[in-house]
Nucleic acid binder design. Structure first.
Length: 593
RNA sequence: GCUCCCGUAGUGAAAUGGAUAUCACACCAGCCUUCGAAGCUGUUGUUGGGGGUUCGAAUCCCUCCGGGAGCACCA
């Protein structure tokens, strides 16, 4: 379909060229209302405006003096009529009808063969259906999640992880070579606070072969204890600062041992969560490795790009319309900015990227602008700044409900998933005989999907209000709705298999809304890739699922009748589309639920 | 105070400068002795206010109102 869309654009361009009309910036797009055809173009309106300007007359389209070309029409509608007429004459096999509507839109309806051809493709290409090679040969590195060892993996981390993983898969579906990386703060005051906390609650410390969650929980508490003490007590403040120094220097055996152990526990715990969420990172970067690297880079251009100010080294961003920010503090320690500067280069050495995407919360958007500006100067030769894009997401807020009312501690990612899991387990079908283990696994996968869907269904950047009851209501626009539809299709296909129905069979029925919806998938994938916008896929899948469920309500798909083979063929295409779409969102696919 | 982001039915969202602003939830009325009712069909209701650009504005510009975030030695 993308090819056809582009072909239509080319055809129209060639018609304009025949008439000597200079380049026109028009689009061939899907009309909002399917009643207006499969594709529509605004070429006549855009060309006419260009013409009117060229003529520079109060009676546009009538006077041609001074203009070497003619628009072939006295108003946009006439222009559209003439272009349409020529388009019909060309008799492209993909096009069935061309009509003019509204202010001068050219509405194009595709031929049945064109749609059937794409439909067959959906069935044949299997897990490649929907993918394209737009980004073939492009290297993309994408950083997301960024949890800090020694701290909890809380619900806030679910956003960048879910978004980052989905973007990775969407970019891969668009042909890019992707590296997933994760940047973690393994040094700094938060680590020192946690270690202080561990030292002051070591009697509660779990044994090495304890559950990972118990270990993570212990460290989360230790960190909270340390952070509280740090704020409240001046003496402890100093102690923690001293621990921080010892971590850097590796000068104290006890501190070093606790550090090493704690970091390992955290990373193992995170790894368990990544597995649950369906993410596998290619490379982990740590602040301990970017710090010196970044500091060196900053000092190398001190005086040219960076300046001294009050004993610190700053980037004078105000000069370029941003904030001035500290890169190395007055104690000579690189700040996050310097580390990030170092990270950009380390990433490039690891994987010479065409594009680098960093997914973080939007509270650091301003600071990131400063960073990009500094990168543009420091890495001018490599052009790293131009290749870097910051994707800022909002916050995950819990509305009313159980989790938000919990006092004190932050809500961890696993707590949220566990609650979702329990709720789903209650509602699972009694029809299927799940073993207890299966039931737990299916509920868990469905829970992950439900949470992820509620994040991916909307545009990146806005806060997400996670209403527990709504997100897990399973009705309508939800993860479980998609899962349910797919499980239903899979069940249907199993039945067709048993009945011995051979699809595709003959095309016994006219093309309907469902078929037209299926063939749009590759365009949606392309658009999601170009806009780095997973929500296009999420929204599309819901529309597709709805179209299928409506179809399912009206028609008997598996039957003794002759039409059955074709209907199974369509159901299979829908199933493949849903499955591939869910994969691009990194939402687990369930066979039964 | 300054800078950035955001205001779309009761609620949560969608819309590539395009055509009558689209979904879902909730509400109300229906549909299971046909393939999974976590489903389907139907009904009600929306672009914060004002100005501008444009053939055409939820979208771009200005302004006001409302919400959020950031504003140098944390990350």
């Amino acid at each position: 379909m993308i090819e056809i869309q582009e072909r239509i654009h080319t055809l129209i361009t060639s018609i304009l060229a025949e008439w000597g009309i200079p380049e026109v910036d028009f689009v061939v797009e899907r009309p909002t209302d399917p009643a207006n055809g499969d594709f529509a173009s605004n070429v006549a309106m855009v060309a006419y405006r260009g013409f009117a300007k060229a003529v520079d007359s109060n009676v546009p389209g009538v006077k041609h003096e001074g203009v070497k070309w003619s628009i072939r029409g006295n108003n946009p509608r006439e222009v559209a009529e003439n272009i349409s007429q020529r388009l019909r004459e060309l008799q492209d096999p993909n096009i069935s009808t061309v009509e003019v509507a509204g202010a001068g839109f050219i509405n194009i309806r595709l031929s049945e063969t064109a749609i059937r051809h794409t439909l067959d493709e959906a069935a044949e290409k299997k897990n490649m259906w929907g993918t394209n090679e737009r980004l073939k040969g492009k290297k993309v590195i994408i950083e997301y999640t960024d949890p800090n060892p020694f701290k909890e993996f809380h619900i806030g981390h679910l956003l960048p992880n879910t978004i980052g993983e989905s973007l990775s898969r969407i970019l891969e579906a668009n042909g890019a070579e992707v590296r997933r990386v994760n940047y973690q703060g393994d040094v700094g005051m938060h680590v020192a606070m946690a270690i202080w906390g561990i030292m002051h609650s070591h009697e509660e410390m779990p044994h090495e072969d304890a559950d990972l969650r118990a270990k993570a929980n212990f460290m989360g508490k230790a960190y909270a204890k340390g952070a509280k003490a740090y704020q409240e007590d001046e003496k402890i403040h100093t102690e923690i600062a001293s621990i921080n120094k010892k971590v850097y220097e590796g000068s104290d055996p006890l501190v070093s041992a606790l550090y090493k152990n704690g970091k390992r526990w955290s990373l193992e715990y995170f790894e368990m969560i990544y597995k649950l969420l369906g993410t596998k990172f290619d490379r982990y970067f740590f602040e301990s490795e970017t710090a010196e690297f970044g500091k060196t880079a900053v000092l190398a251009s001190l005086g040219e790009i960076f300046e001294r100010s009050d004993g610190a080294v700053v980037f004078p961003g105000e000069r370029y319309g941003f904030h001035t920010r500290v890169f190395i503090n007055s104690e000579g320690i690189p700040t996050y900015e310097a580390k990030e500067l170092g990270l950009a280069k380390l990433k490039y050495e690891y994987f010479p990227y065409d594009r680098s995407i960093v997914v973080t919360g939007n509270e650091i958007s301003d600071y990131f602008k400063v960073l990009i500006e500094a990168m543009a100067k420091v890495y001018a030769k490599e052009g790293l700044a131009e290749r870097t894009a910051h994707i800022a997401h909002g916050m995950l807020r819990l509305s009313t409900g159980k989790l938000s009312s919990r006092q004190g501690n932050v809500v961890t990612a696993l707590e949220l998933i566990d609650d979702a899991k329990a709720k789903i387990a209650e509602r699972m079908s009694e029809k299927h005989e799940f073993t207890d283990a299966d039931r737990v696994e299916v509920a868990e996968r469905a829970a992950v999907g439900a949470v992820k869907y509620s994040i991916l269904r909307q545009e990146i950047g806005k806060d997400i209000i996670f209403d527990f009851d709504r997100s897990l209501s399973f009705d309508g626009d939800s993860g479980p709705y998609l899962e349910y539809t797919l499980a239903r299709i899979k069940s249907l296909l199993r039945k067709a298999e048993e009945t011995g129905i051979r699809s595709p069979g003959e095309h016994t029925e006219p093309i309907g809304d469902l078929e037209r919806m299926v063939v749009r998938f590759p365009e949606v994938v392309l658009r999601a890739g170009e806009g780095l916008a997973p929500h296009h896929i999420a929204n599309y899948l819901v529309m597709l699922a709805h179209a299928f469920n409506a179809y399912y309500g009206k028609m008997q798909i598996v039957s003794e009748r002759r039409e059955s083979a074709y209907r199974v063929h369509i159901a299979r295409a829908v199933g493949t589309t849903l499955e591939n779409g869910l994969h691009m969102l990194a939402i687990p696919v369930l066979e039964r639920m």
